[in-house]
């Protein structure tokens, strides 16, 4: 078993954190995991991305040129990572901000109005948790219970964020799971 995912978007969208929370959850579940960020000037105001590899074997290459899943939070990320997804893989698109289309028929595309869903739940900042939940809902890479209990632990000192984040993860998970079942 090996899952490879890239989270990509603007700096400030919380995508590094989303990737880290996924990596922590995978570790808690006993998997081998690598979180690798893009780093440098591009972090400052430009595009940023991180990749996570989750495996039941030691992770060989930490570099993910053809991820099984790409989570794209803005148009530049769509341009860069839409074509990179492995055939048979999955493309999770933040349709609140991404209007570029990916016309690949060999990947499953799931549209998630992440910013709008997060605003509806009370804070636009939770868009990263919406897509993280969606990723787990679509792939089952980690257990959703492990994910939410890690988030409860991580944000324990800020109870107001715990409920918001768990709601956001759940909303994302439900949307993606339905899309996978329903064929979108």
């Amino acid at each position: 078993m090996q899952h490879e995912v890239v989270f990509a978007g603007f700096g400030g969208q919380g995508i590094m954190l989303a990737g880290q929370i996924l990596a922590y959850s995978a570790m808690e579940e006993g998997f081998n995991v690598v979180w690798l960020p893009s780093y440098g000037p591009e972090m400052r105001g430009g595009t940023a991305n991180c990749s996570v590899v989750i495996s039941d074997r030691p992770v060989a290459s930490p570099i993910v040129p053809r991820p099984g899943t790409a989570v794209v939070m803005n148009n530049p990320s769509m341009e860069r990572f839409g074509p990179a997804v492995k055939p048979g893989g999955c493309l999770l698109v933040n349709s609140s901000l991404v209007n570029l289309k990916c016309d690949r028929s060999d990947v499953k595309t799931i549209l998630i109005p992440a910013n709008q869903m997060a605003i509806d739940l009370g804070s636009g900042k939770a868009a990263n948790m919406i897509v993280l939940g969606a990723y787990v809902g679509a792939t089952g890479a980690v257990s959703f219970d492990v994910l939410t209990s890690f988030v409860r632990k991580k944000f324990a000192s800020k109870p107001q964020f715990v409920e918001l984040n768990v709601k956001a993860l759940t909303a994302g998970r439900d949307l993606a799971a339905a899309a996978v079942r329903g064929g979108n």
Partner: peptide
């Protein structure tokens, strides 16, 4: 190399 410094692993 720069990747060892930047990557997170258990």
């Amino acid at each position: 190399d720069g990747m060892i410094g930047q990557m997170m692993e258990p």
